[in-house]
Structures are given as C-alpha cells and as structure tokens.
C-alpha cells in the first residue's frame, strides 16, 4: 500500500470517528465541541504515556479512551441537560483552556509539541502502517456498530424525542439529564480514542493540530453527509477530505472556491445532508421490493 493511501485512509477514519463523536450528542440537539478538547487531551496523554512511561499501545488506547470518557462524564454533570448554546460555549472554552495549558507546559513540548512517537509494532514502517490502519478501521466498525445499536434502541428513540421537543420528551418519562450525560460521555470517549489513533498515525503532535478549524471540518462532514443518521459521515468524510487532495496544481488557488461551491450546492439541494432517514427508508423499501419480487418470481 502506498504511503499516500495510508494517510488518506487513516485520516479519513479519524474524521469519521470525530464526526461521529459530534453526531452522538447532536442526536438530542447538543453540539458538543468538547470532543476536540478530549481528542487533544488523550493524544497528549498517549504521547507522554508512550514516551515517558513506556506504556504499550493497547494500554494507551484503552486509557486514552477512558480518559476522554471520564472528562466528558465529569463535565456532563454540569451540562448534561444544558441547551445547545451553553454546551457550545463550554466546548469552546475547554478547547481554549486545553490549548493554553499545553502551550504553557514544558513537559508537553509547549508550542513546539512532541516529536518522534514510536511505531506500535517492531518491524518495518510499512508493517506498522498496515497494523495501524487495520486497528483504526476495526475501531470505526466497533463504534459504528455501537452507534447503530444505540440509534435503534429505546435510547436512540428517546434522544430523537428530546431533539424534537424536550418538554414533550419529559412527559414521556425521558430523563433529559441522564440521556445528555450518557451521550456526552460516549462522544467524549470517541474523541479520546480518535486522539490516541491520530497520534500514532501522525507520530508527532502540536497544539496547532487541535483548533477550531477541526470543529469546522467535522461539522461540515456531519452536515453535508447528513446529521439525522450515522451513515452520512461515512461518505462525506472521505469525499470532503479527498477532494482537495486530488485537485490539479493549476486549480490549487481555486481550491477553496471549488470546495465552497460544492458545499453550498449540496446544502441547497439537500438541506439535511446526503443521507437522511427518508432516503434510507426509500432504499430499504426498494431493496425489499427487489428481494420480494425475486421470491415471488421463484414461487
């Protein structure tokens, strides 16, 4: 596998995970940008644990994910049932605080960051890349499965009811705070996991990696892909991340214009994004129809 393909696929997986980390709390209408701070904290934690304490990759991955979950859970006591705007402000604040603390901490490399993260396996760089790619896509499958199970359970339906009308959801017996705490903790855990994987893909880290720009990118992927289901980001992340990479040199300067026009066009034609629930049920009906017709023909 070429190095280019590795980075394309690896970073696409990170974008998928991060967009899902934002998607999960948004199921009940909260834009939980704290996930970017979780990503940064867990990535730095992983760097220190690997370089200074000599922890193995698996331990770092599990600990980084749990650290993300722990921070998300603690914060959720305060903002579990907070309105969207308050959750956004808390997210921005935590990103800013995290960045400032990292930049001012010598042990974390300050503004320079941390270099020379080791490979996760002994052997060639190519073998290391293969293993990382397999792990990150297994994680995408795992997280995707968990989100699918959640979306199709009582939890998912409760989250949808909160998204539509909080008051009404409460009358149905939905505990808005507990639901918010659960979704925020889940999102933060994925943010932490993404941070650890991002570190081992890039093998260097600096506070400049975790900016508001990352929120913008993940939001775009979520909203263009479709924010009402988990499937949209699976298409939007590789597409939106890949388009700027394949534009020829002659149109490099127009890249942002092309990108912008593309986004506006998609949002005008499909305001809820590419993949919506009606779209999914339409496909599902068609598949059923085709299958049903085949069975009927056989009979």
């Amino acid at each position: 596998m070429s190095l280019t393909l590795f980075y394309f696929l690896g970073i696409a997986a990170i974008y998928i995970l991060m967009s899902w980390a934002i998607y999960i709390p948004y199921r009940m209408g909260q834009l939980h940008f704290m996930t970017v701070a979780n990503m940064a904290i867990s990535a730095y934690f992983a760097a220190v644990a690997t370089l200074s304490w000599g922890w193995p990759f698996w331990l770092v991955l599990i600990a980084g994910t749990l650290l993300g979950a722990l921070i998300g859970w603690i914060a959720s006591f305060a903002i579990g049932d907070a309105p969207c705007f308050a959750v956004v402000i808390v997210g921005f604040t935590l990103i800013y605080l995290t960045k400032t603390i990292i930049e001012n901490t010598e042990a974390l490399g300050g503004p320079l960051g941390i270099f020379s993260i080791p490979k996760i396996i002994e052997g060639t760089s190519a073998a290391n890349r293969h293993v990382i790619l397999i792990i990150v896509y297994l994680l995408v499958l795992l997280v995707g499965y968990l989100i699918y199970r959640m979306d199709h359970s009582r939890l998912g339906r409760a989250a949808s009811s909160i998204f539509i009308d909080r008051e009404l959801a409460t009358t149905f017996g939905v505990n808005v705070k507990k639901m918010g705490m659960f979704l925020q903790t889940f999102g933060s855990a994925i943010g932490g996991m993404s941070g650890v994987m991002y570190l081992f893909i890039m093998r260097a880290i600096s506070p400049n990696h975790f900016t508001f720009h990352l929120i913008g990118v993940c939001m775009t992927m979520l909203f263009v892909g479709g924010y009402t289901t988990q499937w949209g980001v699976l298409i939007a992340a590789p597409l939106l991340w890949g388009i700027p990479l394949i534009l020829p040199e002659s149109v490099q300067s127009w890249k942002i214009v092309i990108y912008g026009v593309l986004l506006i066009s998609v949002l005008v034609v499909k305001p809820e994004g590419f993949i919506t629930r009606p779209f999914l049920s339409k496909i599902s009906h068609r598949i059923q129809k085709i299958l049903f017709k085949k069975v009927e023909d056989k009979i």
Partner: peptide, 22 residues
C-alpha cells in the same frame, strides 16, 4: 518549481508529502 498547497493543514501536508516520497 511545483506549487503544492497544504492550506496550512497538517493532515493535507502529510498526504501531499507522502505523494512525493517515492
């Protein structure tokens, strides 16, 4: 001189660099 734009993005920089290593 080939113009390669990274847009100040570390991720884009890695992919563009990886295209050149061979």
């Amino acid at each position: 001189v080939l113009r390669i734009d990274t847009g100040m993005s570390p991720e884009q920089g890695t992919v563009e660099m990886s295209k050149l290593v061979n």
